[in-house]
Design a protein around this nucleic acid. Structure first.
Lengths: 203, 203
DNA sequence: CTACTTTTTAAACAAGTGTTTAAATTTTGA
DNA sequence: TCAAAATTTAAACACTTGTTTAAAAAGTAG
């Protein structure tokens, strides 16, 4: 019962590309098949249904997105350095995959908690012992004493939003892609300085 | 040739609600008509087509969103106080309309520049002379010397993202609506402090 | 009341949707 | 080599989509 993985890989590649670009409702099974250069029926033969394929794709995207973050958390660095590297990595990742945050936020908002639990990323974070490190850094006075949700929100807001709002900002300010990329490189420095200053106040 | 505005108003109300919640591709003309308690054909009779209705709705939403910002810009306050009030107003607006940023960013990204030019909001900002005020504040040393795009990005990121990511954060941290609202109230204070400290460094 | 316009309605249209079917083809294992 | 299994295909399925049509209803003005 050896399966032809190449066909499934083709479908996954095309589906990931199309789903991220247009969302679940914005594309059809036939469009995915066309992009993969395959017959429509193959999508359901290999993946049962469009929504099942979608679940696999989004789980995959989230996994890939989470892995690079976890690497930083698991490393043996101070929280301040972890934050610096995290921002750096986020901007790197998002430069390559600018549509991913929008995709995750929009499509995950439609799912219920049970789906999210299946992804099982929470345990990975617990394993990284990042919560203990935060608690300790706050006791030391190294890290500002605000809750973890807000810390995450502050970092994510300043990393993700500039990529999410890219089409809008580009339209408003008439910036071509290369100019906006320069803007983002500059912005990353501002964001890093601002967040580090705020989260890790020196005395 | 007096038109029954009530019917058009009903369609606009339902369309705005449904479009914001589900996006252009996420809903059907029939769903909008059903929500308005009207016959499907009335949508096209009064608004020509679904996409025409959508253009009117999104232009309307953007206008409403922009107006409250412009009020702040036009007021006679220092940039620091304008920033404080702007953040306050953004959080107020977004508490009432949490789905609007996602809606605007997603759907405006699909439109081209010509559509955006039709909205004609740029002139309003020029009229408010906010650009001159920024330039002067930077010469004074009151405002940090970074470009306007980044200033806007910093403020918008920290105001909009917490609302855009709400479903995701709620799922991750198992927070009910009221708890997340408390979180946002807290977060607004952090954001204000962080942004003011960074944008308006005291000496 | 009557002739006319505007509004509303149910029904139909062609096109596209996700999915299934059954036949054709390819691959597999003995 | 050859039957059994897995894969691929074209075609069809029932359903929804945005939109149009033509008749009915409501409203308007002389």
């Amino acid at each position: 019962m050896e399966r032809d993985l190449t066909t499934e890989a083709k479908i996954m590649e095309a589906a990931t590309r199309v789903f991220i670009a247009k969302g679940f409702n914005g594309c059809s099974s036939r469009e995915i098949a066309r992009e993969a250069g395959l017959n429509v029926a193959l999508v359901n033969y290999h993946f049962k249904s469009k929504s099942n394929l979608f679940d696999i794709v989004i789980a995959n995207v989230i996994k890939g997105f989470t892995l690079s973050i976890l690497d930083v958390f698991k490393s043996n660095l101070s929280l301040e350095n972890k934050t610096r590297i995290l921002i750096e990595k986020e901007y790197d990742f998002l430069t390559k995959h600018p549509d991913v945050p929008n995709f995750i936020i929009n499509e995950l908002g439609k799912k219920d908690k049970s789906f999210f639990d299946c992804l099982d990323v929470a345990n990975e974070f617990i394993e990284a012992k990042i919560f203990e490190q935060v608690e300790n850094a706050q006791k030391n006075g190294e890290l500002r004493n605000i809750d973890l949700v807000s810390i995450m929100l502050l970092i994510m807001s300043n990393c993700h939003f500039p990529f999410m709002a890219k089409p809008m900002i580009q339209t408003i300010h008439s910036l071509e892609d290369s100019k906006y990329q320069e803007q983002l490189t500059l912005h990353k420095q501002y964001v890093t300085e601002m967040l580090i200053n705020y989260l890790f106040p020196k005395k």
